[in-house]
């Protein structure tokens, strides 16, 4: 494990690992500590994702330094996680908005139509001029 690596290479990989570990810990701690559901969305979707990104960068550097081979699996995982984290956050925020937030507390939208999450499917189809399903 890392015996055939130069000192600066070990230090580089270690710095990435330690920073990633701290970010991951902060993300998980924020999930416990932050006061209300919407702020709790921030910690795991930002800090923990960054932590995993750091671990993946460290892994990539390790396999380049120690084995001399470039592996693209980490890039794929990073890309996938960084694409899916905002989508997850969006879905959970929307679920939160529907279950925990009073409809009257949401700021009013501009125009006639309600916010997209609150509009029923039929009302949306009529407003956008689409045909109804099955018609």
């Amino acid at each position: 494990m890392g015996l055939d690596m130069a000192l600066w290479q070990e230090i580089t990989v270690s710095v990435f690992l330690v920073v990633a570990g701290i970010f991951g810990l902060v993300g998980s701690f924020g999930l416990l500590k932050l006061p209300d559901p919407m702020t709790r969305l921030h910690a795991p979707t930002k800090a923990t994702t960054l932590g995993v990104g750091g671990v993946l960068i460290a892994s990539m550097l390790y396999f380049i330094f120690a084995k001399g081979q470039i592996s693209f699996h980490e890039l794929m995982i990073t890309l996938f996680l960084f694409l899916t984290a905002p989508i997850t956050a969006h879905f959970l925020a929307k679920a939160n908005l529907h279950t925990n937030v009073n409809r009257a507390d949401v700021p009013p939208p501009v125009g006639d139509r309600p916010w997209a999450g609150y509009e029923s499917d039929d009302a949306r189809r009529i407003a956008e001029g689409e045909s109804t399903p099955g018609a």
Binding site: L31, S59, E74, L92, A95, T99
Partner: peptide, 30 residues
């Protein structure tokens, strides 16, 4: 609440991916 539970499960998955990659570094395999 239920959204918090889902969020915690999602974070567990992300943390587990990190641990799996770390184990890959420790074992030295891809």
């Amino acid at each position: 609440g239920v959204p918090d539970r889902i969020l915690a499960l999602d974070t567990m998955v992300i943390n587990f991916i990190a641990i799996l990659v770390l184990y890959g570094i420790i074992e030295g395999t891809a």
